[in-house]
Amino acid sequence: MSITYLEAIREAQYEALRHDPSVFLYGQDIATFGGAFKATKNLSKEFPNRVFDAPISEDAMVGMAIGAAVEGARPIIEMQFADFSSVGFNQIVNQAATLYWRTNVPCPITIRMPSGGTAGSGPFHSQSMEAIYSHYPGLVIVAPATVEDAYWMLLDSVKLNDPVIYCEHKFLYYHLKAEQIGDRELPIGKARIARPGRHATIVTYSAMVHEALRAAEELQLDGYQIEVVDLRSVKPMDTDTILASVARTGRLLALGEAFPWGGVTAEVIARVTSEGFHLLDAPPMRLNSKDTPIPYHPNLWKSHRPTTSTIAAALRRLLRY
């Protein structure tokens, strides 16, 4: 009996609803229909009057969650796609992110964002928004890469007294399976060594962890041991774990599926070069998507995002330096 990444997200919401009467779910098509991806399947049946369909109004959905949080609720908002959170951007960055700082009242809301690309999804159903939200103070941004993290980090997000942007990767929904959900190992804010190594470090998160692991396998055939750091939390970023890894390997590839300008990979490199410059044996490298909107056709899409082969090629350049 195995469980997928998507089922883990559903199970986590089931547990959150079961354990805490102040939790409710609000989002488009999430009640009877069970969500566009079925992440809330049957939850409205199991928890009547706790799971609600929302109008197509991302701004109002987030604003509503903030008001509810002030009154002691712990809402989980489902954005149908992370892309559409740009319509709720105002409430997220101006209202949710500033509430505690301005008024001393915490804002415990969780916004689930089905993120990242899948073949055929095109420019408006494929975006990764973690860098945009990380730029704003007052938000916590997580991007689980495993079934366990999808489960435990969602439960942790709901318990957290601050607004959490929970970036769940659509590519992993069905592709990623585990035999069972293991124990909770790390809290939000701590990175994980997904694969130990000593010749180079890849720092990445979300679906790219799996591409990185495959590239590391490939390089192993050439005798290289590549360490893969899964950030888990984009913000706060576990700089200590990143620096410790670079100290072991001397080489860094920062990898992300998001657009290349600025962003998480740039932040990783900024931190390593400013705090761990002396640890580096080679200039740190970055690999992101191309700097265009995300294409529709699979031929273009596969070339737009980093893949096992482009990551392996980047690693070889890094190791040759």
């Binding site: 701004d59 008001g67 509810a68 949080a69 002030v70 009154e71 002691g72 809402p75 101006n94 209202q95």
Partner: peptide, 25 residues
């Protein structure tokens, strides 16, 4: 007593959310 932000129209959904949560509770 909610603390307005400068972005007009943004407070209405927050007021609504407070009432929504109370109704649930």
């Amino acid at each position: 007593l909610l603390a307005m932000i400068s972005h007009l129209g943004s407070l209405l959904s927050v007021v609504a959310g407070g009432l929504f949560a109370r109704r649930l509770a």
